[in-house]
Structure formats: structure tokens, C-alpha cells
Design a protein around this nucleic acid. Structure first.
Length: 291
DNA sequence: CGGAGCTCCTGGGGGC
DNA sequence: TGCCCCCAGGAGCTCC
């Protein structure tokens, strides 16, 4: 699923194609994909046509394209399955094509394709820092030059919840999803159910550093795939899951200790842990269902 | 306001 | 072969 490294790959790929391009026409093929644009599909199109995209920006998993008027931006979230494709006009529509943007004189198209429609596009005002309305509540991510790891660690420890929940909370630290949360926890040898308030400061800092490291490595490798839903902006499958040590590896030996990786139900989704390396806190069964 | 649970959505896969 | 159910999960929303 697209987490920070995947979204960053898309941002870099799109920068070449869309920066300084003018929007000639917008066609919304599925209203759900623009549901975050409160004024509706026609208004979205009207606000975009004639505008020029500036180089795309990103915070966490949000991507946005500042418009030439510098007062607004087109915000994009890929959700579970969103993709951008840059194509020539006339290429057959993808089965899950949701929004088509014709750029320049119509010589090429930017297509938003999204099977599960968890993602979407909207046009929003930006604040003095250029951050769109719907992104303002999102915390800075570990790649942000103003990201403060110690402050983020303190914020995690001030929460009254378990560690994985805090890592997934985009208002605490952004960009981390289920996959990189599991990877970071494994690297830091911390169990997902550890109480945030009982963590030592160094442990909170270490799991954040592990998250930053694993995401940087994934970005280097071109993002993570294993779900062919994700392709880069030109439709080429270029993402690899090779750096994942625990996620999706139920029953396989832990790369550190050789004991089998376990899959545990957590927050209505899956967590992959080595219960030998990642000691469960008291009260949590080491074999099954933590919550 | 913080925390937790619910819900949106679609296609693939397993079971029968 | 066909059908049903479960699963994947980001994040906004609601409720307490």
C-alpha cells in the first residue's frame, strides 16, 4: 500500500511531467474520487482549468500540486490503490480510471486511476506555508527538514495508547502505514502492543529512527510492491518488497533469531511480529490476538 | 479533546 | 463451475 516512500516516488516521477503544465480540461469519471472537494466535480474542474501546476509537494502520504495563483492547490491522496499515469490521449481508458486531466494543448493526459476509491482529488486553499487545508492536521514526516525526532518521541510517550497505534496516527508522525510500522517495530525490537507511556525516551526515539531508516531504504529501492496495483507514473511496475523483514512473512524464520514470524490481529488488520525479538508486554498473549 | 471503533470500496482467493 | 465470505487498509467520522 502506498506509504511515504511510494508517495515520494510518485511525487518525483510526476514533477517532471506536470510542473509548469497548464490544465486544459478535467473529466471526473467517478464522483467518489472527488468527494473531498465539497463543491462537487463541476466546481473542481472549473477551479483547475486554465491553472498551471507548480512542482508537486508532499507531507506524509498526502501529495499536492500548488496552482499558479499560489493561493490554492490540487490535493491528492492515493488511499489504498490510487495511481497516477501520464499517457498520450487516445490510449484506452484504464478499467478504474476516475479522473482525467488534459494538460497543455491536450498533447498528454494525467490520469488518476483508483480501483478501491479510497483515494481522491480536491482543490483547496493553502496557508502561509503553502499547506492545503486538509493537510494542516497532518504531522511532519521523518523526511521533512523541520521534523523533530525528539519532540515526536515525546509526543508518542505522552499518548495513552499502544505503540503501533501511535506510529500509525498521522497527527503524531506522518507517512508510516501498516507495513513500515511493522518493519520499524521489528528493527527496534519493540512489540506493537507496548504501552506508549511505559516506553523509555530512547526506545521512542529508536523506533522513529528505525521507521525513517526503513522508509529511506525503501525509497532507495524504488518503493515497495507486491500488490501490482502500484505502478509508477508511466505505468511501469518498479517497486520491490525486498527490504521487508517481517511484513507478510507469517511462518517464515525471523532474520535475526530464526524463530517463526507470527501474524496477529490488531486494529482489524494484521501485525507481523517476532515474539522472541519483540517481547510482548505483560498481559498480552505471545501467540495470539493481542486485542 | 483524546482514544477507540466503524465505515467506505473492489477484486482476488479459499472453501464448499 | 459458481457462489459466498473474508481479506487487504488509510483516514475521516462518530461516539464516549
Amino acid at each position: 500500500m502506498p506509504e511515504l516512500p511510494e508517495v515520494e516516488s510518485v511525487r518525483v516521477g510526476l514533477a517532471v511531467h506536470v510542473a509548469d503544465r497548464r490544465v486544459a480540461a478535467v473529466e471526473v469519471l467517478h464522483p467518489r474520487s472527488v468527494r473531498r472537494h465539497a463543491a462537487g466535480p463541476d466546481d473542481l474542474a472549473a477551479q483547475l482549468v486554465g491553472q498551471t501546476f507548480q512542482a508537486p509537494r508532499r507531507r506524509g502520504k498526502y501529495l499536492w500540486f500548488p496552482l499558479g495563483d499560489a493561493a490554492r492547490a490540487m490535493v491528492a491522496h492515493l488511499g489504498m490503490s490510487g495511481q497516477f499515469r501520464v499517457t498520450e490521449p487516445g490510449r484506452p481508458d484504464e478499467p478504474h480510471l476516475r479522473v482525467r486531466l488534459r494538460l497543455d494543448d491536450g498533447s498528454f493526459e494525467l490520469r488518476f486511476v483508483d480501483q478501491r476509491t479510497f483515494g481522491g482529488l480536491a482543490v483547496e486553499p493553502v496557508d502561509d506555508d503553502g499547506v492545503p487545508t486538509s493537510v494542516q492536521h497532518i504531522a511532519r514526516d521523518p523526511f521533512d527538514p523541520h521534523y523533530d525526532r525528539s519532540a515526536t518521541a515525546a509526543r508518542i510517550r505522552s499518548r495513552r495508547t499502544d505503540l503501533k497505534r501511535a506510529l500509525l496516527d498521522q497527527t503524531v508522525v506522518s507517512g508510516i502505514g501498516n507495513i513500515y510500522a511493522d518493519e520499524a517495530l521489528w528493527r527496534a525490537r519493540l512489540h506493537p502492543m507496548r504501552a506508549t507511556q511505559r516506553l523509555r525516551p530512547v526506545q521512542a526515539r529508536e523506533v522513529l529512527q528505525a521507521a525513517a531508516d526503513v522508509m529511506a531504504e525503501a525509497l532507495q529501492a524504488g518503493g515497495t510492491s507486491f500488490d501490482r496495483l502500484y505502478v509508477d507514473v508511466n505505468g511501469e511496475s518498479g517497486w520491490f518488497g525486498r527490504s521487508l523483514q517481517v511484513y507478510g512473512r507469517e511462518g517464515e524464520p525471523c532474520a535475526r533469531c530464526g524463530r517463526p514470524v507470527r501474524r496477529q490481529a490488531f486494529m482489524n488488520r494484521s501485525s507481523y511480529v517476532c515474539v522472541s525479538c519483540q517481547r510482548p508486554p505483560r498481559g498480552v498473549d505471545r501467540s495470539e490476538q493481542p486485542s
